[in-house]
Nucleic acid binder design. Structure first.
Length: 913
RNA sequence: GGGCGGAUAGCUCAGUUGGGAGAGCGCUGCCCUUACAAGGCAGAGGUCACAGGUUCGAUCCCUGUUCCGCCUACCA
């Protein structure tokens, strides 16, 4: 009988390519509503269509694939739904860069041709990450691949927009919003990254209007915005200034006078000078203060964050100043203003000052508060149900520590600015009648602005005429929606909503959402709000939040730092399974992952270990195999089955609580240190003896355990498990669709486990003795073993052949008191004695050191325990079982001690002789 | 400013009802023993950040301190 041969080392590359194609071709990942089993569905966090697989994706996707493969094997009706996100700003940037290289620009093409161009780009480059995902072995239903700009999803976006508008939850208005002067678009609050910088605090003396010699000194970090000041605020209870409230300031560099107002919210008595300038058009706090005091808003910066002559004119800035500053960016204007103030003798001082600046999360340009008409979602009515869903447990966030984070954010959530001034995305379904809005629609050059107050006609389809005046002259709102608007709908639009599809009925609510912390607010919170609003049900039951992947030093990976670990490179070098297993094993909750290549290499070695133990099994598999009931099998077989059962229980329980790290550790421990290190060594004598009476049963256990273990491991290491599984005896066509192992109590054997503990302890002692006496590993030795406890003494008797084999020698099993007289080294632990014959002239120094050390440790421990037992309070208050345990330990220690001491004495005699 | 998380072996991290401190990697020594040198065996290495408190007993529970990380915030 010929058995298949495996190469000596595992070569992942060809195996992975072959199986990732084959699995898809055979349709194993395809879901169908009429499949048997309870539905289990995950929608993938759609990566940017511009993206390529980075290690964060690798982690995120590996964990999802583990969950999905696990549930598929458990017989669930499993759907993992893949897709990509159109990533408005990012994608537009990519294509614009391409155009620039061709000497073209977005504006030169015009909107329609530009959008066409982006679609072209998507058709050629948009599948990069999808192909890489397949390489990672992701078992998504690829036939259901979705894109946020698909026709179906786009219809859903229109539906949602119109319904929210009808419900009064979407409105348009002029507000101060975050504006990226490079992307030339609005951003939502959470698209702004705050970064602490060292800035300066300028103290500027503002003269009073009715007494130019009296001044009020204000403190500001942005002196150039003073041109748009419309008031100065002091605290109404500030004895220094409160008499000034109601008076006026002559605003320097302008010809304006502005009022002094009292504002307890804006002003902090302790900070700066206690007087604050108010610039409602360029600062969020000032904007609100302006509302409270009915102040005008004067914008002195334009949409590119350049000093705007028109704005300055409106602000009555002195003509010479306007000429000096016109068209300058803030960075250049600030020193000029500073110089002007200094010349005017009104710059009191400049202090160093720590402050936070907001930057665009896409391009890192400093974001400006910018006054402009935008679309918003009134968020409070959506947030309340989303808070409830988490509070009452309909949604479980894992790890739980993020719950408060979520709730805190949701309770203070502000209206969501959803309009973006870009071209790539879902264009807002709103039209304006030119006739009715002639005063609100202004065209300057080729730039049309729809001012606040214009009346939009919101509709899924383009209206043919104005319902008010019947005019057919309509223009569409040029803005597109925030990308997160469509991804907030992802869990139900991907399943066919707004159509009531069978998929929607079967798989919604989805089971688990796996994501990184960074998009908890961007995405998760919004999906919950939208899911509850439009489906009336939570979008998923569990949210598992995993860590961030950092480099080995704990630094965030970034291209500019050059410390990125490229998952594709790593997969190429060490194998995909090794990478996946590494990421899973490091996914401990609440801790970031510091990824070093050595770790991946370590798990590459693990894969190789599995490969080789499979080779071993194949090598000895010829011959009959007999499946006896567990109780009738040999001790090693009973033991490994018991351990296997324990491992199945552990892995399953850990996966149920999303402890991928502990599940991975359990698998590693079992496979390497129990199956390979001990079980395989224990059964070698049987396998290597032709026609051994236990041969048939042992071969069966060997392969049964291996096969079960492969299934247990498959979600973590899909490729190698499939490859090996195919070569060993198995039923079925692929491990992908086999049943996940379940606990079987008949496999558990406490007796075999006890037997094993004694074996391990004994063999360990003999091997230690070997090293102490410098006996080479290959040399056969004679040794005695005995135990104080008669029950264990009997066990040793039964273990005799295993002891002899694993210790490479001849084992004499007798109670220590009956050992024949002779020169030997005796090692003792917990009542177990092992004696190695000392022959020839060996160096006994190492052995003596070891005995001395153990004696010292034993004494120390005895003293500690004695101390506790002599403590009356301990004896009276500690639970009885703890006390007896302590007493037992003291007894054992003193018996061990006596034997060790006699052994030491004997060695000394031998040395002296 | 507020909130959260972390501090355990040289490094990365486990440690779930408080009672003898663990793993992986690295390191040291001995071995090419026919599954595997990407390996085997043995071993060294830890006042569990610091200070108090609760308890018979604390790595674990409580309080405070220090250091690090993250999130969040309108000190101009």
């Amino acid at each position: 009988m010929s058995t298949p041969q495996l190469e000596k080392t595992y070569e992942p590359k060809s195996v992975e390519d072959r199986w990732s194609r084959e699995w898809i071709a055979r349709g194993y990942f395809r879901a169908a509503v009429d499949h048997a089993g309870q539905p289990y569905c995950i929608v993938i966090p759609p990566p940017n269509v511009t993206g390529s697989l980075h290690v964060g994706h690798a982690l995120n996707h590996s964990l999802q694939d583990i969950l999905i493969r696990w549930h598929r094997m458990q017989g669930h009706n499993t759907l993992w739904l893949p897709g990509t996100d159109h990533a408005g700003i990012a994608t537009q940037n990519v294509v614009e860069k391409q155009l620039m290289a061709e000497g073209l620009s977005r504006d030169s093409l015009g909107r329609e041709r530009f959008v066409e161009r982006v679609w072209q780009w998507k058709a050629t480059s948009g599948n990069t990450i999808i192909n890489q995902q397949k390489q990672l072995g992701e078992s998504c239903d690829w036939d259901r691949l979705r894109f946020t700009m698909d026709e179906g999803l786009s219809t859903a976006v229109l539906e949602v927009f119109v319904r929210l508008h009808e419900d009064g939850l979407i409105y348009r208005g002029e507000r101060l919003i975050n504006w990226c002067p490079r992307c030339l678009t609005a951003l939502s609050d959470i698209e702004v990254e705050h970064e602490e910088v060292r800035g300066k605090l300028y103290h500027v003396k503002y003269p009073l209007a009715d007494d130019p010699h009296a001044v009020l000194t204000v403190a500001t970090t942005r002196p150039e915005t003073m041109l748009g000041d419309t008031a100065v605020a002091v605290h109404p209870e500030d004895p220094r200034y409160r008499h000034l409230i109601g008076k006026k300031i002559r605003l320097p560099l302008t010809t304006r006078e502005i009022p002094i107002v009292g504002d307890p919210i804006l002003v902090d008595l302790e900070f700066g000078t206690g007087a604050v300038k108010i610039t409602p058009a360029h600062d969020f706090n000032d904007y609100e203060a302006g509302e409270r005091h009915n102040l005008p808003r004067i914008a002195v910066l334009d949409h590119a964050a350049l000093l705007d002559p028109a704005g300055m004119q409106k602000g009555a800035v002195e003509t010479s100043v306007i000429d000096m500053l016109r068209g300058l960016p803030v960075s250049k204007a600030r020193p000029k203003v500073e110089a002007l103030l200094r010349e005017g003798g009104i710059l009191e001082k400049i202090d160093d000052h720590k402050m936070a600046v907001g930057k665009c999360y896409r391009c890192k340009t400093v974001v400006e508060p910018y006054l402009s008409p935008q679309w918003f979602i009134k968020i409070q009515p959506l947030a309340v149900p989303a808070i409830n869903a988490v509070e009452d447990g309909r949604i479980r966030i894992v790890p739980e520590s993020w719950v408060n984070n979520y709730l805190g954010w949701m309770r203070e959530i502000k209206d969501w600015c959803i309009s973006r001034q870009i071209w790539w995305g879902h264009q807002i379904p709103a039209w304006y009648c030119l006739a009715c809005n002639d005063r609100q629609i202004v065209t300057v050059g080729d730039r049309t602005t729809i001012l606040q107050g214009a009346k939009p006609i919101v509709s899924k389809l383009a209206p043919s005429q104005c319902p008010a005046c019947g005019s057919r002259q309509l223009i569409r709102d040029p803005d597109v929606l925030d990308t997160w608007f469509s991804s907030a709908l992802w869990p139900f639009t991907t399943l066919g909503w707004p159509n009531q599809t069978p998929e929607l009925k079967t798989y919604y609510p989805t089971s688990t959402l796996v994501t990184g912390l960074d998009i908890l607010f961007f995405w998760v919170a919004r999906m919950i709000m939208m899911g509850l609003k439009f489906m009336g049900e939570v979008p998923f039951k569990d949210v598992y939040i995993h860590a961030l992947v950092r480099d080995a030093e704990g630094q965030k990976m970034s291209k500019s730092k050059g410390n990125v670990i490229d998952p594709l490179h790593v997969m190429d070098q060490f194998g995909t399974d090794a990478l996946r297993f590494t990421l899973a094993s490091m996914a401990s909750p609440g801790r970031d992952i510091k990824l070093a290549e050595e770790r991946i290499e370590g798990y590459r070695n693990f894969a190789n270990k599995i490969w080789n133990v499979a080779r071993f099994a194949l090598m000895y598999l010829s011959g009959p195999r007999a499946p006896l009931p567990p109780a009738q099998r040999t001790f090693p077989d009973q033991w490994i089955l018991s351990r296997l059962n324990y491992t199945i229980r552990t892995v399953t329980a850990e996966l149920e609580s999303y402890r991928f790290d502990r599940a991975a550790t359990a698998l590693y421990q079992f496979i390497w240190h129990e199956y390979c290190d001990w079980y395989v060594e224990l059964i070698k004598p049987v396998l290597q003896t032709p026609d051994h009476p236990d041969g048939a049963s042992t071969r069966h256990t060997l392969v049964e355990t291996l096969e079960t273990t492969l299934r247990l491991l498959h979600p973590f290491m899909p490729f190698i498990t499939e490859e090996i599984w195919q070569t060993i005896p198995h039923q079925g066509e692929s491990i992908v669709v086999q049943q996940y192992p379940t606990v079987d109590q008949t496999r558990t054997s406490p007796d075999a486990e006890e037997q094993y503990s004694l074996l391990e302890q004994t063999v360990g002692l003999v091997r230690t003795g070997r090293v102490l006496l410098n006996y080479p590993p290959g040399q056969q030795i004679l040794f005695h073993v005995g135990h104080d406890d008669p029950h264990r003494q009997q066990r040793l008797q039964r273990l005799q052949p295993h002891l002899a084999h694993l210790s490479r020698g001849t084992a004499e099993v007798h109670p220590a008191t009956e050992w024949p007289v002779g020169q030997r080294l005796r090692l003792v632990t917990e009542g177990l004695s092992v004696g190695l014959t000392v022959s020839g002239d060996v160096d006994l120094k190492k052995a003596l050191d070891r005995l001395a050390k153990q004696l010292a440790e034993s004494d120390k421990e005895s003293q500690r325990l004695d101390g506790k037992l002599k403590n009356a309070e301990f004896v009276s208050k500690a639970p009885p079982e703890v006390i007896t345990e302590h007493q037992e330990r003291v007894r054992t220690l003193s018996r061990d001690r006596a034997l060790l001491a006699s052994s030491e004495a004997q060695l000394r005699t031998m040395l002296g002789a």
